[in-house]
Design a protein around this nucleic acid. Structure first.
Length: 493
RNA sequence: UCCUGAGUAGCUCAAUGGCAGAGCAUUCGGCUGUUAACCGAAGGGUUGUAGGUUCGAGUCCUACCUCAGGAGCCA
């Protein structure tokens, strides 16, 4: 055969090849037949396209091969791209030739059908489930979220510094850790947060972030938990609580913007209501019109861009009124713990909550769901009681019983996506905190050193990628947000 | 760890204590515009495991196993 092989084209960009003969390299996704007419649907990872094969138009061998081909067999297809209103994507391909790279055997058909499946079956076949359009779309959105997250910090003066994954002790004394032998006598633990380590790199480099997997051995069995998940954590020297709240807001806005820029089609496949995401990044006027609370009264307002030049450090103790002119156009509502408690109290009295929230306690899942349901965008809750928060959090100088910390709750009941705080910068205070929490002082000596050698106010937060993917894609479980989820009862495949 | 629920054909699910069923998938046949195509036929079962009650158990009882999602904890 002297005819040259037509150029290879991606299905997603076939509209640019209308009228041309191209080569598709992919898999047979579905096949419908109507007598002497075949409708194979091909996928190649970028999308799907319907082919059409009239018996009279192709060699007998091509027709018979396709007619008997099994689903998910790998194929190289050549054909001419044609616009057709009857095709689901608006385009279809007139198949001219097909080469079967590997044929799925008849006796072991591809297990994932286009019909419904149960969770257990799908997770057991996760390696094949990934091929379905919805799962592929989710992974594409995930990739953009991860890229946008890193991109935000990379373009705002942050240096990526990767903390160790094997650690000698708990970062916080609380959560359970995965333990392993470390050579002869020692134990090592998989990291549950890089925070303590990036505090060190922040004091070396100013503005840093880490991005990697973290591990929690908690026996949590909910739609929001994985035992292995990815977290991105910025840490900023000479920053206080209000600065990182501004940072978190700009950061999330950037990610949502990028997802909307690049994934309209994927979000449609996933079935996401895009209007809900557009509302998140809508301008401030909408937020300020929100009648429920006036959350701006007690926070300083520094534009995130001010961080780039190390704003004269305005600690959260110096709460200013914050002129309207300096307000970020993309403002998320901010509630103090006290304000959030009052909101829950009111809701309970109005019969909208089953159980009352006890002042001083952390918010439970139903509490968080209620609070976030009151807003159309993420809501920040700051200044929790110090007693229920981690040892390294700086007390609020206005009220020492509160910690300078913030949780960001995603809307629509997706729960906490960010947890952050200003860190204790006093050597003596940190040391006594470590002792109060019965943590081994020796293991934290290096961490204390950071307060001995040029300590400064600093703050940061951590964002769980999978929860953000679940939120932005509108998924009901984080297990679909990562190629191979690790959960309490599952480590296969 | 606690609470609740579910395990029946490859998959999704039916079956009053009384013959083990359907749709999809697979195989065969039909159909030139199908959209999870449709129509006809065939094959496909140790009802999660082990005991027990009963003339008779998928169904009732006990224990165990597996999975699910909710609480707690967290991102």
């Amino acid at each position: 055969m002297s005819t040259p092989t037509p150029p290879v084209a991606a299905i997603a960009s076939l509209s640019a090849h209308e009228g041309q003969t191209v080569t598709l390299r992919g898999w047979l996704y579905n096949l419908r037949a109507s007598g002497k007419l075949l409708f194979p649907i091909f996928r190649d990872g970028t999308g799907t396209i319907q082919g059409i094969v009239p018996k009279a138009a192709v060699p007998e061998e091509v027709f018979e091969t396709l007619k008997n081909l099994t689903l998910e067999s790998s194929v190289v297809v050549t054909g001419k791209v044609r616009a057709d209103s009857r095709a689901p994507s608006g385009y279809e391909i007139d198949v001219e030739n097909v080469e079967v790279v590997q044929r799925v055997p008849d006796e072991t058909p591809f297990p994932i059908t286009l019909k419904e499946h149960g969770v257990d079956f799908l997770m057991e076949h996760r390696h094949l489930w990934l091929r379905t359009p919805r799962q592929s779309a989710i992974l594409r959105v995930r990739a953009t979220i991860m890229r946008a997250a890193a991109e935000y910090f990379d373009t705002h003066g942050f240096i990526r510094t990767d903390p160790p994954i094997l650690t000698p002790n708990a970062c916080e004394g609380t959560s359970e850790l995965f333990e392993m032998d470390y050579f002869d006598d020692d134990k090592a633990y998989l990291t549950q947060s890089g925070q303590l380590y990036i505090e060190a790199t922040a004091l070396a480099l100013g503005k840093v972030y880490s991005f990697g997997p973290t591990f929690r051995a908690e026996k949590s069995k909910t739609r929001r938990h994985l035992t292995e998940f990815w977290m991105i954590e910025p840490e900023v020297a000479y920053a206080g609580l209000d600065e990182i709240m501004d940072l978190a807001e700009a950061f999330i806005t950037h990610i949502v913007t990028r997802v909307l820029e690049h994934h309209r089609a994927d979000l449609k496949v996933i079935g996401r209501d895009v209007a809900k995401l557009e509302a998140v990044i809508a301008l401030t006027a909408a937020t300020e019109a929100t009648p429920i609370v006036a959350p701006f009264s007690s926070s300083t307002t520094i534009l995130p861009s001010a961080l780039s030049s190390f704003a004269p450090y305005s600690l959260s103790s110096q709460r200013e009124a914050g002129g309207a002119a300096s307000r970020n156009a993309h403002r998320f509502p901010r509630l103090s713990y006290d304000e959030a408690h009052a909101m829950l109290d009111e809701a309970y009295k109005a019969g909208k909550l089953e159980n009352p929230h006890r002042y001083g306690d952390d918010f439970g899942s139903p509490d968080e769901t209620y609070i976030s349901s009151q807003f159309d965008r993420p809501v920040m809750i700051h200044r929790y009681p110090a007693a229920i928060k981690a040892f390294y959090m700086q007390p609020d100088p206005v009220d020492a019983s509160k910690a300078l910390c913030v949780d960001v709750l995603a809307p629509e009941g997706y729960g906490e996506i960010i947890g952050g705080s200003q860190r204790v910068d006093s050597y003596d205070l940190l040391k006594s905190r470590i002792e109060e929490h019965n943590l081994p002082l020796a293991a934290f000596q290096w961490y204390l050193d950071l307060r001995k050698y040029g300590s400064v106010p600093h703050a940061g937060f951590g964002m769980g990628i999978e929860r953000v993917v679940a939120w932005l894609c509108g998924l009901d479980h984080v297990r679909e947000t990562i190629p191979f989820a690790r959960t309490l009862n599952r480590i296969y495949p």
